[in-house]
Design a protein around this nucleic acid. Sequence first.
RNA 1: GCUGGAGUGGUGGAAUGGUAUACACGUGCGACUCAAAAUCGCAUGCCGCAAGGCUUGAGGGUUCAAGUCCCUCCUCCAGCACCA
Length: 783
Amino acid sequence: MHKKFDHDAIEKKWQEKWRTSDLYKTDGESSKKKVYVLDMFPYPSGEGLHVGHPKGYIATDIYSRFKHMDGYEVLHPMGWDAFGLPAENFAIKNKVHPRVAVEKNIANFKAQLAHLGFNYDWSREINTTDPEYYKWTQWIFLKLLEKGLAYESHEPINWCPSCQTGLANEDLESDGTCERCGSVVEKRPMRQWVLKITDYADRMLEDLETLTEWPEHIKEAQRNWIGRSEGAEIDFKLGSGDTVTVFTTRPDTLFGATYLVLAPEHELVSKLKVENRSAVYAYVQQAAQKTEIDRTNAEKEKTGVELQGIKAINPATNTEIPVFISDYVLSHYGTGAIMAVPAHDERDHEFAQKFQLPETVVVNDGVLVNSGEFDGLNSEDAKKAIVAKVGGRMTSTYRLNDWVFSRQRYWGEPIPVIHCESCGVVPIPYEQLPVMLPEVEHYEPTGTGESPLAAIEDWVNVDCPKCGGKGKRETNTMPQWAGSSWYYLRFIDPKNDQALIDPAKEKKWAPVDVYVGGDHAVRHLIYARFWHKFLYDIDVVHTIEPFMRLEFLGFILAEDGRKMSKRWGNIINPDDIVKQNGADTLRVYEMFMGPFENTVAWSTNGLVGAQRFIERVNGLSEHVKDGEPAEITRLLHKTIKKVRSDIEEFKFNTAVSAMMIFVNAAEKGALSQESYEAFIKLLAPFAPHLTEELWAGCGQTTSVHLETYPEADESLAIDETVTIGVQINGKSRGSITIAPDADEAEAVTMAKAEPSLAKYFAEGEIKKVIYVQGRILNLMIGQ
RNA sequence: GCUGGAGUGGUGGAAUGGUAUACACGUGCGACUCAAAAUCGCAUGCCGCAAGGCUUGAGGGUUCAAGUCCCUCCUCCAGCACCA
């Protein structure tokens, strides 16, 4: 029976009880098996949540409530990734301190999450902008510095002219624009801090194989991002006495290398004595002006300038070949120089056509030709042989670049070093952490390559901790991604001010067992894996990977099929849905919409369907009788089995569907009090408020969420009879109802007795019988 | 271009190689109602009056049996892409 109820009153009542009884506080003392369930923590933006945001939180709430009821000790915390540009831009616009804006937004987010009935252990709440938190972010930086994995560089980097800060490659959209503001990003040489993530490239790549519970597309995205290419470095001597080292994946084509190309930024370009200095200089200038988009557009015609008066020797042929600079060679990939093989590379071919350079075919059908002593060798063997002959080195190179780690902005963790006039870079002593982010008058970026912190003289000017002489603090701050690269560890030991994490606690809780979120296929998940491996190397953590299982979340689009955005005015606020339809309805609906990883459009009609289900459950007690038909008992146990395994596998849509089937059947028949209570427990993780209310309605005085999750009794789940399909010559022609363990003879007898099948038996004799118990009976009938 | 994933009713989608289209939405008809909403019942892949036939992007193959496995192709989504 459909039964409406005052969801608002019920939700408020139970949320308050859960809160005051510390229902979800994780103590960490028990000997139960642990499970660490984590959401990608949100950035608390001023816009608040839309209905798409809680989808992942609903899933982890269900999962962790289920695990809790099933006898696990569950860690399910929540926190805030609160450093970053949006808070800072908001502060600039509204003249409010970012801290104030962030605090307000967090309060709003927390209230919105509370309305959905989530079971977070708020005693472990963390905030990346809290000095007690970023003290340890700075600690990790100092450890990286100590191990030689953080260094200063002056290479040209991505510069966003609108955000007025340097950016990492990971902060760019695929078209080369700024991920935050959409501006076209420039290359700009400046001093910056860089983390040597490339040292971990091989391990990050190889260890992906151990992540058997990660979606394939995420692992693939990471492989693409790291982009390892196997090849060789080969040295070319120049007439000037210098050496150019090129990287190639095709050393087997060395005999076909008819010229060299250097990136315009290549260090040799300014050192070499070229005859056409002004033309070369002009080209270098021009390349520097270009945006990344222009430079990497494969459509446009190749340009370049020959370095006149310079010749290189092809070490295989010992012939002189010309040397060019061109912007189709990228300074940040490989060695920034290539050997051009126009006969076997499209780009080189295009360039050679334009500059009328010779082409030599050296490989034919995978076999070498025009390659002297190597003729007749296959490509793979030739690679090694030729590299050995010319004294090259087999090596690999990566698309991944080191992580540009400094930002010229205010709202981030200060990088904890001092620049001393005599000692150079001096780390802040560990015991002086945290380096507090100081108050400033203006948050605006300066645009000079210095952060606003540079203007605070009494903060900047300090004595060197090493020699006591004059020093200046580093004024750059860390990027948005710093705090989120290790936050999952802080939840385990959130109040520790002596160490990043207590080793015993780390051993108990790490790694994260189930990590849920979307969007961050490369950025966050690459950075966090990098830091985790580093922390493994310095014995802070005991596993090589931070997240054992990753469940990728599909987004919720607006009802019009577009992204929910202010711009389209199609945002649905979960608060409104909670008010109108109830938190349990919203939870069930978002899980029922489709597979968890699918992106699906919001549907108000679909929401109503979930609401009807919730209301039917509310009326289910009217069908409770003294006894119940055997098929209801059977269905209950089948449903329990299905729901359990579906939750485990994050197949929430089919779990809800199975429970709907049970309710439909129970309404048509009857169910016992025992089955009714089992069903309430089964549904409890999905609809925590209603089930708590119904549980109390059964005369229970303790929370349903502290009950043991129902277990299926296999013996009760077995069918007395099954209906199986009957095929004649492979085509479905009808069905028979039969004992699940009936033998072949019985099945054939049943089929023969089935009136609707009689005409097929009249067509001839049974030539062959295929019978799979409980599944199918297939009869070959013919003359 | 390379790589990964996916194509099933009007819609979201279900299906350990074993009766394709569960569940939900929508729609139609009926009940209740003065009426409407809500609710309840029945129907609902396509063609056909019916018997029956056809159907999981297209085409082949393996199998007693294919949405599911294999091959070729098409389309869509995602990541990477002048990366040597």
